[in-house]
Every structure is written in structure tokens, then in C-alpha cells.
Design a protein around this nucleic acid. Structure first.
Lengths: 342, 342
DNA sequence: TTTGCTTACTGAAACGTTTAAGTGAATTTG
DNA sequence: CAAATTCACTTAAACGTTTCAGTAAGCAAA
């Protein structure tokens, strides 16, 4: 039960292996007669030949493989890859990659883990890293000789291409929207605020909007290390415990916002009557949850597509650092209402 | 900027490449002295050597790579991979695979597409196929010389291992539960009912429960199309159009159930007061939606883990066909209530 | 007629591993 | 003490491609 190799095809077609390779790869500069091409393709079909891509990678040093690294927790505990946003992004990346002849090498990442082993040794043509933050992991990657795209990271490093969104603008937009609806006490709920992370930018945007309206930022911002539905629920409890000072909340991730809403409902509060909520990301879930979530929309499909595009361009020889920032819009749904006296 | 290879390590450590390979692979039967082992490992560390897994696969004919095929639609249109269940399952597969030293080669599949090219040519050690149904695609795979695990398929074929759940039992359980709550007119909402597919089993289970209670199944209570949130919403419209005969619905996928509920709410109906709903899968979303969904729970994390285990066992030499059926339980949440007169 | 160019191929090395088979030296066995 | 065994390695072939550097034939140009 041996695999059929290029040599078998060559024998069948009465040509050399080299010729078969040239036929299959339409190698520029090489000329193969129409007749021979026919014979080779015939043989390929007859023998059901499929090229061994490992051998091809080994020889040509390109693999048509893109490594994708996504934060992962133990399964069953949380959403797919800890945030449904990651799932949707992955889906978009996969789709674009496949349409361009790439395969995906998928690996989850956990805090302490080395990034390098995960992907380098397969000879990937590029790596897309989602949700990374600076640290020894990124240091490791710098030495690698492969294009790397960081998604949603504010690391400015010549070694990494980045793709992101107008975080600060988006947050300002959301907060301004709440202010325009008459709210002045606006909670800020997010995952951990780290330097170079998206949340610090979103916090800035939130402050920008408050400042423009002459409101002092709320010292009691709620945030945690993890972006999760569970933390959203917990934050609701905390909000009640603290005396429900705010009439609105800007939440930096939909999954968190949905948890918050759920938690508040469980406490017998009504949304948006008792608290107006604006989320961030516009994951599919936001349309589904109850009440449906007013949120800052980002084009996830496009983000994935651009990530793949950057890898391809870099692999094709582009050498300067590339950066791609996508715009945001606000989508109004049912989780916000005009402020009224309580 | 050359890659460091095993030969560089060999030179550095003053031994042959073979010795380095033996040290790195702890090859059984081969003895390498402690001192040499030390020297080699030192050299590996000094040179930051990482083995080229493509070369390894080529030479050893095992890749530590598992191909995963998941139904995929255009991104942005629907959930991750068309059903959040797939995302959660993928997450579980990834986790288990990684813990066992495997990487994942991910590919989405679309209706018309050949499965073979997607994975075979990378020399994967096995393929996990989610949501496949018999057809020419499976025919193609039969010829391949690689363990294949079909998830949720009732294809009985010596060429494929399978992993599934007690679909019929689960459906019976759900329907019996509704009957026990006093319902007699129970809708059946599902994706397309195909031979060898899970939905035909679930339909049987639904009929079993009705029969046991002396209820004749009603053609008019059937809603079947595609598994998607959108179709759930559409089914709600259809339900209203048909005159709201049923007081309860058994829905064969949570994502569909959530759409149905959403659609009904949009029509001004209340859940569970106007319609009791039981879903299937217990995806994370079921806890989050409003009202939270009573549903048939399956252990998705375990399912993913078992899929990987089957691949590993098959790769290790097990040759008879393996089949793994996991049990189901019913989880009660807020989408069902006792029937009362209307 | 020689030279040079084009066309259509082929040979062989290289990519980075694994692994079967072998090799000497040291050690044990009969 | 010779023979057999064990130990600790090495040699070289193989895995299935790509690709550089030819080559031989045909033809046009000088």
C-alpha cells in the first residue's frame, strides 16, 4: 500500500520527475509542450496522484501553511477559545486562507506557553497571533524568520505587522452616544487594562468623551483579568453592591456585556430601564441576546481577511512593517435608552 | 540567515546527526551515554535548534498532525462555522490534541468540495470530520490510508470510526419531559432530516415518546430546514402562520431553538408561557439566552477528547472499527413550563 | 558552415530528518 | 582465552519534492 509519488507519475507518462513537477507547478520560464502536459495530467488522473506537501515544503521552503494562535482555556468552562469573538475571527481567517490556497495550523495558547514550538517547526509561511501581549513570548518570536501578524495589539515593533481597529475612537463614540442619551454617570467595564493592550486605548476613548462633556471619569471602573461571560455576571453583583450609582455602562467586550446584562436581570433589574449598556465587537451573540445589544461594530470578516492578506504580502517579499487599522461604527439595538429621573 | 539543522547540532556536539536524532527521540532500543546526551542537549540549547517537522514527517511517515474538517459558510453571515456547537467542539479537540503532542490542520468544508485534497497531502495521521453525511465525499475518503473519525454520523462503514451520542434516547427524553409537563401538541423543529443523519434518529426518539403516550405524530407539527439561527426565526413566523396549534416544541439544536425563541418574542409571544421549548446540545449560548434554555445536554469537551483518542488509538495500530456513543442528560432551565389552558 | 538562440526536456543535488544495518571497542560468557 | 554479547556510536539510504545546471535537437542568423 505505497503512496503514489511523482516518480510513479513520471514512469507512467514516460517523462522525468522534473517534467512532472514543472507541469504541476506551471513553473515560469519553463516550457513544456502541450502534448507532454496532456500525457502527464492523464497519468496524474489515472494514478490518483496527490503531491506530498511536506516534501514540497521541505524542498521549496514554502508551506502554504499559516499558523494561527488563539488564547485557549480548558474546554467546557467557557466559550470557544474563551471569547466568541475569537471563534468568529478564526472562521474568517480560515475562509480567506482557504480561498487563497493556504491551510491553517491551529493552536490554542495558554499563558505560560512558548509560542515558538507551536508553529515554527512546521515551517509555516506566517503566523497570525490573536490576543497576544508583550512579554517573553513575543521576544521569542522576534528571532523567527517568518512574517508575523499581531491582531489587536499596540506593540510597535519592526518585527511584527499589526492589524487592529480604531479602539480609542470606537470607545469615544460609544461613550458619546450614552452622553447624548442624557447619561452622565457611566461605568467602564473591561478586561485587564494593560499597556499596549486594546483596553487601555478604549479607556482613553472613554475618558476623551467624558472630558469633552466636562464629566470627571469614574474612579470605580470595573475590570478583571479575564474577559468572560462569568466575569460579566460577577460585575453585575458588584454594581449592585456598590449602590447602583451609574445609569449606563460602556463595556469593552460583548461577551462581558451579555454577562453583565444577565447578572442584572437575575438581580431583578431591567435593561435598559435600570441600566443602559453598550458593548464592543458586535459578535453574533449581540443580535441574539435579550435585550439585543447596542454595540460598537467591527467588521470581523474583514479583519480576518486582512490578517491573511498581510501574511501573503509579507511572504511575497514586502519587507517594511505593515499596519492596518479598520474603522468602527455604532449599531443601535435595544440595550440603551434615554436617561430619565429615577 | 540559514535555519539551524540537526547537522549543525551534530557538529557543535561532536557527534553524528544520527546520535542527535536518537537523543531527541529517546529511541527505544538505542542507548546513548548520559555524557553524550548532555553534550547534545547543550548544543541544542546553544543553537536554539528546533526540529523541522516536515522533514520528520517525510522520513518517518507520521506527522503528529490531525486534520479537522468542519462545515463552513461564508464568514460574517452566521455563527462561527455555522453553528456554535462546532466552535466548542473544535476548541475541545484542539485542547486534547495539543495536550497529546498533536497539532491541528483546520479546514472548513463547503457542500461541493472535495475532502481529500484538504488533508491528505499533508500526511496527517488522522482526520476528524464533523457534520459529514454520506455522499461522494465519503467515497473519496474510503480509499485513503488514514484513520478517519466521523463525528455525529450514522454511517456504518468499516472504513470509518464514529463517535456520537444517544440521539434517539435524548430526543425521547426531551419529548417525554414535555409530555410530563402536560403538553400533547408538540412541534418538532430541526435541520433537514436525512438518512444516516442525527435528525432522523432524533425524530424517531420524538415519535417514540409520542407513541408511548398514545399521541399520533402530526405532520403539521414538523418544521425542518437548515440548522441556523435564521431558520429558527423563520420557523417562528411559520408557527404563527400555521395557527399556533402546538403548546411546546422540541428543537434539535440549541442555535435553532434560540432563533425560534427570538422570533416568537418578536411576534409578541412569551416564552415559556405561550410555547415551551426544549433544545439540544447545551452549547454555552443556552445558558446565556433569554429565557435560558432547557435542553438536552451533551458533554462536548468529552466528545472532542474522545475523537482525538480514537485517532491516536487507530494511529497506534488498532485496526478494528471503533465506535463511541456518549450519554445525554436533560438540563432544566427557564424555557419550559407546565401546560395550562389557553 | 559555424555560431548562437530557442525549445523541450533530463540529471542530480538539495531540503532536514529517520532508521536499518553496520562497526569497533569493551565486557561477559563458556 | 576465544567467542559471544553488549554498548555506544556511525554510515548511508530513504522519504518526495523542487530547482539549478545542463543537453540535445531544431532553426535562424552571419
Amino acid at each position: 500500500m505505497k503512496r503514489v509519488s511523482i516518480k510513479d507519475v513520471a514512469r507512467e507518462a514516460g517523462v522525468s520527475a522534473t517534467t512532472v513537477s514543472y507541469v504541476l507547478n506551471r513553473n515560469p520560464g519553463e516550457t513544456i509542450s502541450a502534448e507532454t502536459t496532456q500525457r502527464v495530467l492523464e497519468a496524474v488522473r489515472r494514478l490518483h496522484y496527490v503531491p506530498n506537501l511536506n516534501a514540497r515544503s521541505l524542498s521549496s521552503r514554502r508551506s502554504n501553511l499559516i499558523g494561527v494562535l488563539i488564547p485557549q482555556t480548558e474546554p467546557g468552562k467557557e466559550f470557544m477559545f474563551s471569547n466568541p469573538f475569537y471563534g468568529e475571527l478564526l472562521s474568517a481567517i480560515e475562509y480567506t486562507a482557504r480561498k487563497n490556497g493556504y491551510h491553517l495550523l491551529l493552536s490554542g495558547t495558554q499563558e505560560d506557553q512558548s509560542y515558538v514550538n507551536v508553529a515554527q517547526n512546521r515551517g509555516v509561511d506566517g503566523i497570525i497571533i490573536v490576543g497576544a501581549y508583550p512579554g517573553r513570548n513575543l521576544e521569542e518570536l522576534r528571532g523567527m524568520n517568518v512574517p508575523i501578524v499581531l491582531v489587536d495589539s499596540y506593540v510597535k515593533d519592526a518585527a511584527f505587522h499589526t492589524i487592529g481597529i480604531e479602539d480609542r475612537e470606537g470607545a469615544r463614540m460609544a461613550t458619546e452616544y450614552l452622553i447624548a442619551k442624557g447619561h452622565r454617570d457611566i461605568a467602564f467595564v473591561s478586561g485587564s487594562i494593560r499597556e499596549h493592550g486594546v483596553n487601555s486605548k478604549r479607556y482613553q476613548g472613554y475618558c476623551d468623551a467624558l472630558a469633552a462633556a466636562g464629566i470627571a471619569p469614574d474612579e470605580n471602573a470595573l475590570y478583571s483579568d479575564t474577559v468572560s461571560y462569568e466575569y460579566g455576571v460577577a460585575a453585575a453583583g458588584e454594581y449592585v453592591r456598590r449602590g447602583r450609582k451609574q445609569t449606563a455602562a460602556f463595556v469593552t467586550a460583548d461577551v462581558l456585556a451579555v454577562g453583565l446584562v444577565k447578572g442584572l436581570l437575575q438581580h431583578g433589574l431591567r435593561i435598559p430601564e435600570d441600566l443602559s449598556v453598550v458593548g464592543f465587537d458586535d459578535v453574533y451573540l449581540s443580535r441574539i441576546c435579550y435585550p439585543s445589544l447596542t454595540t460598537v461594530h467591527q467588521d470581523i470578516a474583514r479583519k480576518g481577511a486582512e490578517a491573511v492578506r498581510l501574511i501573503m504580502e509579507a511572504a511575497a517579499g514586502a519587507h517594511e512593517r505593515m499596519e492596518c487599522i479598520l474603522p468602527l461604527t455604532l449599531v443601535e439595538r435595544d440595550s440603551v435608552m434615554e436617561r430619565r429621573a429615577r
